[in-house]
């Protein structure tokens, strides 16, 4: 799978999280209460982790309790993947691990050792055109508040690559792990059908 996009900026290095910098905690908590309980980034970071994220090498220390989602958001500052439920029930945290979609909130970061992670930030090369799935979500008005959208898009790209887009019913079945509280499902299904054609062509 296309986990190593071309023309990527330099390696990601862990640094202060927004919370450690004293910023945004209330803002984040207001939007997603579970985020307020995120694992600590630095204290207890006893496990060395080497992996590739969006094509870039990452070499960092994590607390073994850290989820892949918290590693991405709090240490690597890739805040595209969202924390909705933090229990694998909503799909907002969906990323690709070695080319397969997973719930990053229920994936121990430690399990990403020596593996490839693709997030919404790495789906299309920077500065260029959007990925056909991203463009299709815009074209078909497949979102309202947008909180679930990165997870929807990452799941949808997998849905197409898996071949689970034969009809609307199959798309709904294989997208059932992604909840949209705004109820943009009609647009989401239309976007996936459209993008499936564009992905096959391009």
């Amino acid at each position: 799978m296309d986990d190593d996009p071309a023309g990527v900026p330099p390696a990601i290095s862990p640094c202060l999280t927004r919370r450690e910098a004293g910023l945004g905690a209330a803002l984040v908590a207001g939007l997603a209460p579970a985020a307020a309980q995120a694992a600590q980034a630095t204290p207890g970071a006893t496990l060395r982790l080497v992996l590739r994220v969006n094509g870039k090498a990452v070499d960092t220390m994590v607390d073994p309790r850290t989820s892949l989602l918290d590693l991405l958001r709090e240490q690597l500052h890739l805040t595209g993947a969202k924390k909705g439920c933090d229990h694998g029930q909503c799909g907002a945290c969906t990323v690709h691990l070695d080319g397969r979609r997973v719930a990053s909130c229920l994936t121990l970061a430690a399990k990403a050792q020596d593996r490839r992670v693709l997030t919404i930030e790495g789906l299309a090369p920077p500065g260029g055109a959007l990925h056909p799935m991203q463009q299709a979500f815009i074209d078909h008005d497949a979102l309202q508040c947008g909180y679930c959208t990165p997870g929807q898009v990452m799941a949808a790209v997998s849905c197409v690559r898996e071949g689970h887009v034969t009809d609307a019913a199959q798309i709904r079945e294989y997208m059932s792990g992604n909840i949209c509280r705004c109820g943009a499902y009609t647009g989401i299904v239309a976007a996936i059908q459209d993008a499936a054609t564009r992905m096959r062509e391009g």
Binding site: L97, R101, A103, T107, H164, G177
Partner: peptide, 9 residues
């Protein structure tokens, strides 16, 4: 059972 994300895990 579950969702495709969880079935992959």
């Amino acid at each position: 059972a579950a969702s495709q994300q969880l079935r992959n895990m």
